[in-house]
Write a protein that binds this DNA or RNA. Structure first.
Length: 284
DNA sequence: AGGTTTTCTCTTGGTCCAAT
DNA sequence: ATTGGACCAAGAGAAAACCT
């Protein structure tokens, strides 16, 4: 990705490197001090930039804003704690930096798809099942659209015919319910439909076959997780559809936002007592 | 008892534009 | 390349009621 200044001009290699270092420092601060007060000002100080400039640099490098990135990491860490520890939901809430259990629960439910307590029961029930199997069940449950508007081509990743989940999200962070989703065996293509007047950014994720459900939902192992993101949102134009999008899978990087949605798990176990059937019957 | 949902208020973040 | 002001939107926190 070529970085540009606020005036739209490409920045020098030295400036780009300085920005990368600054953003990596701030992300390190986020991950090490999730439970602390991490305002924009604090993170900017960690990056050695003014809050204003830090915000812009961060957005250019991560395609997300500092606040959203931090919120995503807090929820991601909460998922990890819920999956691996016996701490109460209240303890987990406090540990990841929320002072209000109400805010934590509503945020968690909004981006992950289920409340924290139900998420824990769900992960515990399927903890050691290969995540690949869950994705396979999801793929079998999804019928390809008759008239796809977007064709997504996925390649790369761990190879060996691994299954990738593709979602149409409202930004660069895979959270909240996607406007559409599909499962594809890599390398391969899938057709998707975009709801009217909706800007969707196609994102894909793929795990190595050895990854279990518990490891996948915690998503802390960068080496065994592959992701791909379209350069930006797709807005359908009647004159040019259908649109083709290439999604080359690569290993996750520290600057990538965490994967928050547990939708593959929720969808694939639809019908199980642990899953709210109205949620499991999501329209994707 | 612990967890979830809802509602309201206030703070902070995000964005645009202009200046240095 | 970097900074700052202004305005608006989104998010956080608190509290209470309800649920499991």
């Amino acid at each position: 990705m070529e970085l540009t200044s606020t005036a739209g001009r490409p920045v020098t290699e030295r400036t780009a490197d300085m920005w990368s270092q600054a953003v990596l420092r701030s992300i390190g601060t986020m991950r090490e001090h999730l439970g602390d007060d991490l305002s924009l000002r604090t993170l900017a100080q960690a990056a050695w930039l003014s809050p204003f400039h830090f915000h812009r640099v961060f957005h250019r490098l991560t395609d997300s804003t500092p606040a959203r990135f931090l919120a995503a990491w807090r929820i991601a860490e909460a998922k990890r704690l819920l999956a691996y520890s016996d701490d109460s939901v209240t303890d987990v809430c406090m540990h990841v930096g929320y002072a209000s259990l109400g805010t934590f629960t509503s945020q968690f439910t909004r981006v992950v798809g289920v409340p924290p307590g139900r998420f824990r029961r769900l992960v515990q029930a399927y903890a050691d099942v290969p995540f690949h199997d869950i994705v396979e069940r999801l793929g079998a449950a999804l019928a390809p659209p008759e008239h796809p508007e977007v064709t997504v081509s996925v390649d790369g990743g761990p190879g060996d015919g691994a299954l990738a989940v593709i979602g149409l999200f409202d930004g660069a962070i895979p959270q909240r319910r996607p406007a559409g989703c599909a499962v594809v065996r890599t390398p391969g293509t899938a057709g998707l439909v975009i709801p009217p007047d909706t800007a969707c950014q196609p994102l894909a994720m793929c795990f190595e076959r050895s990854v279990t459900v518990r490891e996948a939902v915690a998503a802390t192992d960068l080496d065994r997780c592959y992701v791909a993101a379209a350069p930006g949102p797709i807005l359908l134009d009647d004159a040019t559809s259908p649109v083709t999008v290439e999604l080359p899978l690569r290993r996750r990087r520290p600057t990538d936002p965490p994967i928050l949605l547990a939708l593959p798990l929720l969808m694939a176990v639809a019908g199980a007592d642990l899953v709210d059937t109205s949620l499991a019957a999501a329209d994707c």
